[in-house]
C-alpha cells in the first residue's frame, strides 16, 4: 500500500452525548481497498460510521479523511462554534444507510433517490443538469437497476432498494464509501449484485468500509477486517483477524448472531 490512505484513525474514540461510543480505533483504508467492520449488535459499528461522517463527536485521537484532518481539539472548537461541518462536506464520502429505515410510502422514484447523491455538488441554487442525469444513469447501470429508474422507490424489493441506495452513493462519486449492514435480508441474487458492485468500486480506486455481521462476505470482498466490541479488538488481513479465538472474544460467545458462518471463518479451518 504505497498510496496514502483515504481514511486513517489513530487512537480515535467516538462518543455519543449519552456517553456510549466506541474507542481505541487504529485503522486505515487505502484507495481500492475494502475493509470489513465486524462486531455484534451494539458493538459501535454504526457509531464508527457516523463518527467518520462527522455525526458523532470525535473525543480522542486523530482522524484523517484523505487530506482533511480532524482531531479532538478542533472538533471541540467547531462544535462550540455552531452547526458542525462534516468531513463529507465536499462529497468525498458516500454513505449507504440501511434501506429498512426509509419510509416505503414516500412518493419518490428510484432515479430521484439516486439524484440525491448529486445534491451536494449542486448546492442550493443549481438544479440537476445533463452531467448529473448521466451520472445517475451510469450509477443505476452499475448496480443493474437501469430498467427500474422510474419506478417508485417504495415499490422495489428490499434488495433493489439497497442497490438503489448504493447507486445514490456511487452517483456522488466518492473516494470513501461507507456501507452500513448492506447485506441484511438480501436474497442471493441481490447479494451477488452488491458484491460485484463493491468489487467494481475497488477496481476504480474507491476505498470501502463495510459494516456487517456476515463473515463470509468479509472473506469474499474485503482485504482487511476490523473487529470491534465497544473498543477495537483487532485490525489486519482477513486470515489473521478472523480466527476462532478473536471472533469468540468479539462476540462474547454469542454464536446465534453469526448464523452458520462461525463454522467457516478462515482461522477455524486450520485448527
Amino acid at each position: 500500500m504505497t498510496e496514502s490512505p483515504v481514511l486513517r484513525l489513530e487512537g480515535v474514540a467516538f462518543t455519543h452525548p449519552g456517553g456510549s461510543g466506541v474507542s481505541g480505533l487504529d485503522l486505515e483504508i487505502a484507495p481500492g481497498e475494502a475493509v470489513a467492520l465486524i462486531g455484534p449488535n451494539g458493538a459501535g459499528k454504526s457509531t464508527l460510521l457516523m463518527g467518520v461522517l462527522g455525526m458523532v463527536t470525535l473525543t480522542a485521537g486523530r482522524m484523517t479523511v484523505a487530506s482533511s484532518e480532524a482531531d479532538a481539539a478542533t472538533e471541540a472548537s467547531t462544535a462550540a462554534a455552531g452547526p458542525r461541518r462534516t468531513h463529507s462536506q465536499d462529497g468525498m464520502i458516500g454513505f449507504l444507510p440501511q434501506a429498512a429505515e426509509l419510509d416505503p410510502d414516500f412518493p419518490i422514484s428510484l432515479e430521484q433517490v439516486v439524484m440525491q447523491g448529486r445534491y451536494r455538488r449542486l448546492g442550493f441554487l443549481r438544479w440537476p443538469g445533463r452531467a448529473d442525469r448521466e451520472a445517475v444513469r451510469r450509477a443505476l447501470e452499475t448496480v443493474g437497476l437501469g430498467d427500474l429508474a422510474r419506478r417508485r422507490f417504495g415499490e422495489l424489493s428490499g434488495g433493489q432498494r439497497q442497490r438503489g441506495l448504493l447507486a445514490r452513493a456511487l452517483a456522488s462519486e466518492p473516494r470513501l464509501l461507507l456501507l452500513d449492514e448492506p447485506f441484511n435480508g438480501l436474497d442471493q441474487q441481490n447479494r451477488d449484485a452488491l458484491i460485484d458492485t463493491v468489487r467494481g468500486l475497488k477496481a476504480r480506486g474507491v476505498a470501502v468500509l463495510i459494516s456487517t455481521h456476515d463473515l463470509e462476505l468479509a472473506k469474499l470482498v474485503c482485504d482487511r477486517v476490523v473487529l470491534v466490541n465497544g473498543t477495537q479488538l483487532a485490525f489486519g488481513p482477513v486470515a489473521d483477524v478472523l480466527t476462532l479465538d478473536n471472533v469468540q472474544e468479539c462476540f462474547d460467545g454469542v454464536e446465534v448472531e453469526l448464523d452458520e458462518h462461525t463454522l467457516v471463518v478462515p482461522g477455524h479451518e486450520g485448527h
Binding site: 452547526p83 462529497g91 464520502i93 454513505f95 426509509l102 442550493f124
Partner: peptide
C-alpha cells in the same frame, strides 16, 4: 424554493442527508 432539493432529501432520508453534509438544524 432555494432549499427544496435538500428539504426533500432530508424528508426522505434524514441520516443520509446529514451524511451528505447538509445541516439538519439549518
Amino acid at each position: 424554493a432555494v432549499t427544496m432539493k435538500q428539504q426533500l432529501f432530508r424528508a426522505f432520508d434524514a441520516r443520509g442527508s446529514r451524511a451528505a453534509g447538509d445541516s439538519a438544524s439549518w
